[in-house]
Amino acid sequence: MPFVVLHLRHKIIKYKGLIFRVCYYKITTCKDFMNTILIPGDLIETDVARNRNYYFTDGNNSYCTSMCILNNGRLVPLEGLWYPNEGETVVGVVKEVKNSIVEVDLSHFLRAIIIKSPRDRIAFRIGDIIEASVKQVEDKKTIILIFPRLLKSGQLLQVKAVKVPRIIGKNNTMVGQISSFTKSNIIIGYNGLIYIKGGDMALAVSAILKVAAEAHKPGLTESVKKFLERELEVTEK
């Protein structure tokens, strides 16, 4: 199925001490949507915006290191691990409680800890589900978490971490849509763990899994909306 992609680009032009910002469209024709999927070792064109974790440079060229898709001139990973950034929300489970630190399992290869402060009144127990924020990553080995909050008696769902941005959606549109349809409270961790409580949990789970499975497809917000409407109609009947 051939189709055309329009990329909106900006260009800064300096002319006689003045700076102009020029907008223009770049047109890419794709013979096939699937042709835009890149595999490890594929050359990345120079004008592609990229996430630092999914390419490497060799000489003057950059190459892909994971399964990626070219989306509006951006390199978006299809598979890959979570590389924590400051301020990201995570969902995890308390693994070990010591005097001064609490170790949290984020289902990730990095160790995650909360440093207890005397002001914290939370009594952590092993197996508790918590939500927290990434404060910093120390030495590529330990994630330090802050602002922990206990989450009680809900369901834990695990998806691939690279799918999380799509599940959240632009300005929370996707997750907002799912939770308004299902009346569930959904907390999404960037590490791929998702906490769901209340409402139609089964529907929320299947909607999230649908987004994760089809994360690379265009027009997803609309198709998920249709899916939710259809499913709710069935249950109401």
Partner: peptide, 9 residues
């Protein structure tokens, strides 16, 4: 511990 959280559920 993630299995443990699932276990409670």
């Amino acid at each position: 511990s993630i299995n443990l959280a699932k276990a409670n559920y």
